[in-house]
């Protein structure tokens, strides 16, 4: 008999004569303590994210590409990784061409194998969209796909994320329900709640462990 059969057989023997417990999931326990008035929702998100060293800016939707350029300029960064196949990616590229911005735009348009070294060591910053955010825990929801790959939010030392103000939900449970997660998840769904950090030495908090050292969130107010 295979290991699989043996394990299942032992487990079934252990359950003999018992009945499965009914599902008594009380959703109020994970929703009620985590509800916010619309005007407080973004404030909650913002303050939680700022507590863990995230920079948060709220701006009019049309102004974000200029803000991105400013962020790069202030930090004297040379390049920015972006997703050319996304709406915001195209918007960014148009702005960059018009403004004749000097920072180099790097398009994530080929498999990682073709430029692993470069991605690992030479990219200064990246910009991605988000699939919303969760106020209760101060988390961004990232839904990577073929246009906006997984490593964009992990490898560069600075990660800039665009968030639509209207897509901030109260808590994880509501987010799952609204976006109907069980119906179809991407290869790698992510909740990101700040820059990478560790407290493994003496519990002293240090940022930039393996992922981004800085996370900047641009909250876009719908015009």
């Amino acid at each position: 008999m295979s290991a699989r059969d043996n394990i299942l057989k032992k487990l079934r023997a252990g359950l003999e004569g018992s009945t499965p417990r009914p599902d008594q999931f009380d959703e109020t326990l994970v929703t009620e303590p985590w509800q916010y008035a619309p005007e407080d929702r973004i404030q909650r998100l913002r303050s939680l994210m700022e507590t863990v060293h995230t920079e948060v800016y709220t701006l009019a939707a049309a102004n974000w590409p200029a803000k991105v350029q400013e962020l790069l300029e202030n930090r004297r960064l040379a390049n920015l990784l972006y997703a050319p196949g996304t709406g915001h990616g195209q918007q960014l590229a148009e702005f960059w061409a018009e403004a004749a911005a000097e920072q180099n735009l790097l398009a994530y348009d080929r498999p990682i194998e073709e430029w692993k070294e470069e991605l690992f060591w030479q990219v200064d910053a990246s910009i991605t969209g988000t699939a919303g955010a969760i106020a209760a825990t101060g988390s961004l929801v990232l839904w990577p796909d073929r246009h906006e790959p997984r490593l964009m939010s992990l490898l560069p030392p600075l990660h800039i994320a665009l968030l639509k103000a209207s897509e901030v939900e109260d808590n994880l449970y509501v987010m799952m329900e609204k976006q109907n997660w069980p119906a179809g998840l991407p290869t790698n769904l992510l909740l990101v709640s700040g820059p990478s950090k560790t407290a493994d030495i003496e519990q002293v908090l240090a940022y930039g462990a393996h992922g981004p050292k800085e996370l900047v969130v641009l909250i876009l107010e719908d015009a």
Partner: peptide, 10 residues
């Protein structure tokens, strides 16, 4: 309240 990353692989 949550870890920096919650990584869901499907």
């Amino acid at each position: 309240p949550i870890t920096t990353y919650v990584n869901m692989i499907s």
